[in-house]
Nucleic acid binder design. Structure first.
Length: 684
RNA sequence: GGCGUGGUAGCUCAGUUGGUUAGAGCGUCGGAUUCAUAACCCGGAGGUCGGGGGUUCAAAUCUCCCCCACGCUACCA
């Protein structure tokens, strides 16, 4: 018996929203298929995930909605957990990072690293809100953007111009909590010196995993390592998260990127405690294979940072493989939560009750394994009707119907085998190994296609042997044919389980079989002669055009809504504080004409514009190159802020700022006068 | 701009260390069939392998340049 041990993790979804098909296709369906296969093989496997419930975005969302962070995470944790259960994602435990076990585990982990002297401690000046009595996370500091002048820029990024900032760059910073001007105060933080692991990472990944890791994963890692790694802060000043377990750690928590992956360990501990297992076997025994299923956005954390943490801790195994997937698009557009451009799992089940396996099938067969892929409803319908219904469902149905028609649902005896039969038997016997190889190499799409070939083979066998004709002259031969066909059906129930667990259960019910393990696959003695099978029920039903049109309209409606501005609230920027007329009048806004434009060398966003302001001709650097080419804008009359302090950008002094409107898709548009007006005209 | 990944039939993808007429599924067209949810089965059409140079007796496969998509990174309204 194979006793290989596996610890399989699926990315921790961030608990600030529901789950959509992109998550399922990229992470949870492949992970589940893999794990179901391993279990069927009799391997010792634990499969965990959980909600990632810490971090600043949750605190911000809570603030916006006027509720506590706990309320937010409770709500989404429950919803996410239910979605996974509904789709048959067979976690041994789906946990959450707000659990005590996790707080303990993460604390211990930090303590070990700290005691070993792995972490570096640095004291820096940070902004502190005296009224609120706490340090301010970068996002909690608001102030003027030094680049574009936007007055509501966050301390980490200006949402107006997209610049990444550090809080110290903000002009007139104020606290998002109290509105007061924050003071600078010294604070101490712990850092993980990733730079010290560069040599080791090179050996471990670049030399050691060149062959067995997916090219996209390997390439991304190489890119990161080659660029050089920096120390990353492990702690931050915040009150939502795992408290830093040292004397001078008050008011500090572990940074979410540090505590989140430890959530895998916590979940395993929790599961082990509940089931009487030893969690350490699954994380510290060198014989255990650790496999992380994630999306491509998480590669750096799972291939570089977390392994560095595990390595520096010293007791843990390192990931054996990280089969990260790319992204799934929806009807040719990126999935976007804020634009509601998504198929949410809970909504899918309302519209297509009982069709979990259809979605699992489509997402697997079309999974973004090597590049971004597209999900379309039309394809969904075609896959269901032409593959699940026509090939798999049809095969099972015709075998069962024929058995009832000719043998009253009793498995007929298998007589003498022809060479043709033996060919079928041989081919069936070959499938398990081919599939195994696909699974072990994380080629789930190919595995699913191979699995469908079993049904194709069965259909062809029936077409070639024509039992419905033969029944009149050779009943015994028909018995043999159906017996073999039924064995093929039983094989489908074993080898299909990783992909289509709900369907397999139906097949087993129809055939009156118990669930069987992988080592029985390939056999033609899965159903005994004389066994009574049940009445056929349809495994899949056709999906009509109507249902597909409904989904497409639903999506298009969200697009229209978005265009009209009736979109999900958090995309609209909040109204800024009231100002006096004097404040406004400080701005000198004019009309000017673009008389020249050229691309700024070595930049892909910037155009160097020459503007005639009526009183002078000045140079303005503007980041509009993605939306406008130099040729199309010369001669346009635009709005310009002329008394903005000059600033050198890419070595060019920019003397002003062109006013642009920014759409929700990030596209920029000029503000243009609607009738002829001379250069230098005042805008007020 | 730098780095990474990808660009093969209408669609989704395979193509092992360069080697005979470049494959599969779906779609499409034609045929056959009726046990089956008009499904299954057989056959045909359809590709200058993103574009262009180079190496080679021989390149989708190696090399150089360019274009496009996605991601990371830099600069940035």
């Amino acid at each position: 018996m194979n006793t290989e041990r596996y610890t399989v993790t699926a990315a921790l979804p961030y608990a600030n929203g529901p789950i959509h098909i992109g998550h399922l296709a990229g992470v949870y369906v492949p992970a589940d298929i893999y794990v179901r296969y391993l279990r069927s093989k009799g391997r010792d496997v634990v499969f965990v995930s959980g909600s990632d419930e810490h971090g600043v975005p949750i605190t911000i969302k809570a603030k916006k909605e006027g509720v506590t962070p706990q309320y937010i995470v409770d709500k989404y944790h429950a919803q996410i957990k239910k979605s996974f259960a509904d789709f048959g994602i067979s976690f041994d435990l789906y946990s959450r990072t707000s659990n005590k076990v996790h707080h303990d585990t993460a604390s211990e982990f930090f303590t070990v690293l700290n005691d070993k002297g792995v972490l570096e401690v640095k004291t820096t000046d940070q902004y502190y809100d005296e009224k609120a009595g706490q340090f301010l996370a970068d996002r909690y500091i608001i102030g003027g953007c030094p680049n574009c002048g936007y007055t509501e820029a966050y301390g980490d990024q200006c949402e107006s111009c997209g610049t990444s900032l550090s809080p110290s760059e903000l002009i007139n910073p104020r606290s998002a909590l109290s509105g007061d001007k924050p003071v600078r105060k010294k604070t101490k933080h712990w850092y993980l010196p990733l730079n010290r692991y560069e040599t080791w990472l090179k050996e471990w990944i670049i030399d050691g995993h060149k062959k067995d890791w997916k090219t996209n994963v390997y390439g991304q890692c190489k890119s990161w390592i080659d660029q050089g790694l920096n120390a990353r802060a492990v702690t931050r000043d915040l009150d939502w998260g795992v408290p830093v377990p040292v004397v001078d750690g008050q008011g500090k928590v572990l940074y979410v990127w540090f505590d989140a992956p430890i959530g895998y360990i916590s979940a395993t501990r929790e599961w082990a405690a509940q089931t009487g297992n030893d969690w350490e076997k699954y994380w510290k025994d060198p014989g255990t294979k650790l496999v992380h299923f994630i999306g491509k956005d998480n590669i750096v954390f799972h291939c570089i940072i977390f392994p560095a943490m595990l390595k520096s801790h010293g007791e843990y195994v390192l990931p054996d493989n990280v089969p990260a997937n790319e992204f799934l698009n929806l009807e040719n557009n990126k999935v976007s939560t804020s634009k509601n451009w998504a198929v949410w799992l809970h909504e899918y089940l309302e519209d297509f009750p009982g069709k979990q396996d259809v979605l699992r099938y489509v997402l697997c067969v079309n999974a973004p394994e090597t590049k971004d892929n597209d999900f379309t409803w039309k394809d969904f319908q075609a896959r269901n009707n032409n593959e699940l219904v026509a090939i798999l469902g049809n095969f099972i149905n015709r075998v069962v119907v024929l058995t009832h028609k000719f043998f009253n649902g009793v498995i007929p005896e298998r007589g003498a085998l022809t060479a043709f039969d033996n060919k079928l038997i041989q081919r069936i016997a070959d499938f398990p190994d081919v599939l195994s190889l696909n699974f072990e190499n994380f080629k789930f799409r190919e595995a699913l296609n191979t699995f469908m070939d079993i049904s194709r083979l069965g259909n062809k066998y029936l077409a070639d042997t024509e039992p419905w004709k033969l029944i009149k002259e050779d009943r015994e031969r028909v018995g043999t044919i159906l017996n073999l066909s039924l064995q093929v059906a039983a094989n489908l129930a074993i080898m299909g389980e990783p992909f289509l667990p709900f369907t397999v259960e139906k097949i087993n019910n129809i055939l009156g079989l118990d669930k069987k393990q992988w080592n029985s696959a390939g056999s033609i003695d899965l159903i005994g002669t004389g066994h009574q099978i049940n009445e056929p029920t349809l495994l899949f039903e056709k999906i009509e055009d109507k249902a597909i049109e409904f989904q497409i309209n639903k999506l298009n409606a969200t697009k229209t809504d978005t265009k009209l501005g009736n979109k999900v609230n958090d995309e609209i920027k909040p109204v800024k504080d009231t100002i006096l007329y004097e404040d406004f009048s400080k701005l000198d806004l004019r009309i000017g004409t673009i008389i020249g434009a050229e691309k700024v060398e070595k930049s892909n966003k910037l155009l160097k514009l020459k503007i005639d302001t009526g009183m002078d001709r000045r140079t303005v650097v503007s980041g509009i190159a993605k939306d406008y080419s130099p040729g199309e804008i010369v001669g346009m009359k635009v709005s310009i802020l002329i008394n903005l302090a000059p600033k050198k950008i890419m070595g060019i002094e920019s003397q002003g700022m062109i006013l642009m409107g920014e759409g929700d898709d990030g596209k920029l548009a000029f503000l243009l006068p609607d009738k002829e007006i001379v250069n230098g005209s005042v805008i007020s």
